[in-house]
Design a binder for these strands. Structure first.
Ligand SMILES: [Mn+2]
Ligand SMILES: [Mn+2]
Ligand SMILES: [Mn+2]
Ligand SMILES: [Mn+2]
Lengths: 219, 219
DNA sequence: AAATATTTTTAGATAAGTCTAAAAATAATA
DNA sequence: TATTATTTTTAGACTTATCTAAAAATATTT
């Protein structure tokens, strides 16, 4: 239906709008997200507007139309379900699944993705804790809290990460943390920003401010 | 490494060479196999020759180089392993798997395909009975016999099909046949070419000459 | 061998997606 | 407000893959 490239643009616009918490996003932001040039983005935005997938006015930013958002959510659904498959069935680490899912998310077959969903047991989250849209594109959004906002002594559960880079995911794993781990933040070093965190086994680890901001938890 | 399109051309040349039992194949045959025009094929053959993937001389046909054959076999491996996944794990019928595998065969990740292979239990054949090349591209070719060449009364086992069209596969299924079914050909009607075949439960079915030629068996 | 038919290749165009460099619009600063 | 900086768009070119129509080469008939 829509090309590989069109799907990637729609997904990028969706992601940026979501992260920036506003429906409009900019040409430059899209270019950076897709590792391409602003001129290429402008060209594509014109095509997407032509096809009514985005609302676009020159110099005034762009937002997804209903149809565009629906396509983007289907791509996100496919991406996250394939990540679950790679992680749960093929034993790939959570730092490895994203790259392969970037390719698999473009396979066109509703029947395939719905059967995969069933085969995986209709998971609600991907290996990074991100929610998986259902068949109709509905997404249940939970407001998770970054660990650095949690009060000292307040026990909480790791539910996701907001940085998917390999280096960050590997260090989270090295600390012995993963989705579902119970954490209790302790003392914060006001000088260098590091945070002490207690694990269920009583062990205490120290993590930097930046890491604490990308570890999402629920209380 | 190689584009979607390049992979499809290499696979087509491999398939035609294999079917025609000679390494050389023609521009027109490739055009028909890929549902494109002869002029497009000529253009692509020049590019593939440039990249040393095929041996090509104007007006003299084309054959795969060692590297080209290796790429083609990897694509075939991926195609057939994905067909097994779709059939065995996601319960797709053998008439449905090919179309989806045409997309999945282009996913680039050696680690993925090798893990998938292990996950599926290193199958030797796809749902149509076709052999699956191993990691190194080695293919164990068995000489199966079309059912119409089997002597009357000689029991044999269905091991594959040489036509993958939906209509044929559906009719084979309707007769209650599948990979592994034991068959005993009986009387052949010399007038209309139909063949009587006995099944393990004693039931007798009648199939046409064309179908009998596309049902492969071993004795 | 000459005429005809078929196959294959070339020539020139088109579409999708990308790029650089320059121009235009908008935003920030003095 | 005028100047400067940043962002965005246009203009024109390039790549990959495709097409039609015409020319060239090869194969088949008479
Ligand atoms: Mn991902
Ligand atoms: Mn994810
Ligand atoms: Mn197939
Ligand atoms: Mn097959």
């Amino acid at each position: 239906m829509y090309s590989f490239t069109e799907e990637n643009y729609l997904k990028a616009i969706y992601k940026l709008s979501y992260e920036q918490k506003q429906s409009e996003t900019s040409t430059n932001a899209i270019a950076e997200e897709l590792d391409t040039r602003a001129a290429s983005v402008t060209d594509m935005l014109k095509k997407l507007a032509e096809k009514q997938l985005v609302n676009y006015e020159k110099y005034k930013g762009v937002s997804l139309s209903d149809e565009g958002k629906s396509v983007a959510l289907q791509v996100v659904r496919k991406h996250r379900l394939w990540e679950v498959f790679l992680h749960d069935k093929l034993d790939f680490g959570w730092e490895e699944v994203h790259e392969i899912a970037e390719q698999l998310e473009h396979i066109q077959s509703d029947r395939l993705i719905n059967r995969l969903d069933d085969y995986l047991g209709n998971p609600k989250h991907d290996p990074h804790g991100d929610p998986i849209p259902d068949k109709s594109g509905a997404l249940f959004i939970e407001n998770y809290l970054p660990l650095n906002k949690v009060a000292s002594g307040q026990a909480c559960i790791l539910t996701g990460v907001s940085d998917h880079s390999t280096s960050f995911l590997k260090s989270v794993e090295k600390w012995g943390l993963g989705i579902g781990t119970c954490l209790t933040p302790g003392d914060k070093n006001e000088y260098d920003g590091t945070l002490e965190v207690e694990l269920p086994n009583g062990e205490k680890i120290v993590i930097g401010q930046k890491s604490a901001a990308h570890i999402l938890v629920k209380i």
